[in-house]
Nucleic acid binder design. Sequence first.
DNA 1: TATTATAGTATCGACTCAATACTAACAATA
DNA 2: TATTGTTAGTATTGAGTCGATACTATAATA
Lengths: 186, 186
Amino acid sequence: MSLTNILNLVDSIGNLLRSEEKKFLQPLGLQPIHLHVLMYLSMCNKYSNNPAALTKYLGNTKGTTSQSINVLESKGYLVKQKSKKDKRIVKLYLTEQATEIIKKLSFEDSEDFFNDRSMEITENVLTNILKSLQLSNQSMTFGICKTCDFFIDEGDGFRCGLTEEVLFDYEIDLVCQEHESELQDI
Amino acid sequence: MSLTNILNLVDSIGNLLRSEEKKFLQPLGLQPIHLHVLMYLSMCNKYSNNPAALTKYLGNTKGTTSQSINVLESKGYLVKQKSKKDKRIVKLYLTEQATEIIKKLSFEDSEDFFNDRSMEITENVLTNILKSLQLSNQSMTFGICKTCDFFIDEGDGFRCGLTEEVLFDYEIDLVCQEHESELQDI
DNA sequence: TATTATAGTATCGACTCAATACTAACAATA
DNA sequence: TATTGTTAGTATTGAGTCGATACTATAATA
């Protein structure tokens, strides 16, 4: 029972998921990287749906990211829109065509497969592993809004302590590139 | 607490590991796929260190695998050797140069980070997730020798029930392409 | 022996990716 | 306001991966 074992398992599951992804994407003429872009955009918030955040998330160069985006745009999976606040920034929005693909690839929960307590512990361990890896590599944390240190619950609503903006209910479960937090206890 | 959450975590950790891998591999002139080949060869047994098994494991075509192997061979990371039993089969062996790279990339265990019971449960849940994914996709299981249904403990030694061959101690922790097993209880 | 199946290779075109150089927009300062 | 530097993103090009196809060599089978 060691961290190495767990990381090897994570890697094996990842390999398998990617291998299955490939079979699914082939007929659509898409590459794995394109699906990762779509997945990211489907779960990130309004501060994080731009090429720069994608570049950090994917670990590619910005030129490479730019090309991946162009491919997806030309195939109708996303649309670009210049930010009005800062005209250098491009906002990326998924099309209906893209969200349908993502829906097909999401897993239906088989709740009866493991007991709740085991799932909870597993989720906690993995969350902490992810965070400690992110910390030790000085990479962006890209966590979920509501788990961020900047997140403020005002009782009658939510607010981001960094941008000072009000957050709608649906936004607090999305991934943010500005996410910051300490490790949780288990 | 759901399977989807856990798979998303697995995916995120996988993305991060790959992103870090890339930074490490860049100066060596290697691609991620090459590292996966080396990793696989470092943990597979004598029935599984051939291009065909690699092809199944990686989910690529055999032509693609052949090219990846050639790149690694030309850079001195592995050597080929024709099987004497079956002259169609090529055995792949890692060089010293390759094992050094793998050593650098393996994680040192930080045992104090999580408690043993949590780690054990996590490992178990992930193992079962992996197995059920493998089953539902009819993909090769590629499990560890000693967890295989063909594995025989004879008291004074070990044996493979499929090939009938005697197994040395160091072999029973290696990955085998012929691995078969049922799901474990948790 | 003839046929079929298996293991692996060679070649080529499509495509990804990194590197480089570039433009446009913003920010800071004098 | 003009200057300088920074940030966000794009365009181009060359190296290299990958998949498809066609191929050789060996083994298994009828």
